[in-house]
Computed example of a mutant assay.
Amino acid sequence: MSTHHPLSLLVFGSLEKCLDEIQRKGSLISRSTSNLGEPIHDLRVDCRKGLAALDFYKPVIPQSCHERLRSKLRKFLRRSNLGRDLDVIIQALKEDDSQGAAQLLRRLKKDRKREFRDVQKKVGKLEFGSMKTKLHSQMLAPSLAPTQAAPVASAADWAKQEFQKVALQILSDIHVGEWDTESAHQLRLRIKKLRYSLELATSIAGEISLSMDESLLSQVQRMLGEINDLAVRIRMLRGYQCGRKRRKDQAFLEKQISADNQELDRSLQQWSEFWTPERQSCFYGALAKRTF
């Protein structure tokens, strides 16, 4: 009979699966000759889920392993940010058949190609063989219980407690006042963390009910994602505007930035109208109950 601590077994298995998937997708990207937009986006999502897993499992993971893995995933996300942002702008402008859009798209695609090539060179560093060996030796030592985790009756109880902590973090940082791109972005990040943490807790504790329609989480994340994409697009286009000297290019960029700013204002207004006090009360009330 195994003498491994059951929680350590579950956490190691979950982390190993997550890291293997990141490494597999990274390997495919490094050898790919086709469009890299969606594969890189999918890999970035998996890296964010990996970061959420590291935070969720932090009491169980050896500190040195936690820090090294977190640093590696965050470094890849930083290095792939620009390519992803360029891809967002290209997708938004590709239906525009004006001459100004065509000229800008050529420049954007050239820059995206350069960034994606750089990602292909760096993605090979998402290799976790030695780190998994270290995790295995430290986490699965015979009869070794998680040293930082408080005693719990079962792994399921521990997972529920950790999810409660995530829910309480969100409750402790409720936004009050008018919404802008930064406050919307911060809520978007917290909602992502909540969804990923819910998946992790469910994988250990079984089905967890939030006492709410979970499609609300998806809708909130979608609306906030659209606001974030617009904010990124405006910031990037302003950067290109500073580097363009031709009047035609400047005129198109000014027109596009103005249109995007108007759309951003509408999106923020729609969000404010959607995120009513009643809906917030439902959302935060469900988190406060944390029904399991």
Rank of each mutant, 00 (worst) to 15 (best):
D20I: 11
A205W: 10
L86M: 02
G124V: 02
L217A: 04
C18G: 09
F163I: 13
W275R: 14
K125N: 04
Q138K: 10
K245T: 13
R114V: 12
G83T: 08
D55K: 07
S258M: 05
K160Q: 13
H136Q: 14
F56E: 06
E199S: 10
I227Q: 13
Q91N: 02
S218F: 08
S32D: 03
L43H: 03
V60I: 12
D173W: 12
R266M: 10
D46M: 02
Y240H: 11
S64K: 09
E67W: 08
L10H: 05
R117E: 12
R31Y: 02
A145C: 11
K192I: 08
A141Y: 10
I170L: 15
K122P: 02
M223A: 05
S272F: 14
Y284N: 01
A205R: 12
G26H: 02
A201P: 10
W271F: 14
L108R: 02
M131L: 11
K165Y: 09
L287V: 14
A101F: 08
Q120W: 03
F163H: 08
S130Q: 13
A149R: 08
L217W: 01
L187D: 07
H4W: 03
L10D: 11
G37I: 03
H136P: 08
L9M: 10
F128R: 01
G206Y: 04
K193L: 15
F274G: 08
E127G: 12
A102P: 00
R114M: 13
K75P: 00
D42M: 01
V220G: 04
G83P: 07
S215N: 06
T291L: 10
P151S: 05
L82R: 14
I208M: 13
A288C: 02
L9V: 14
Q164R: 15
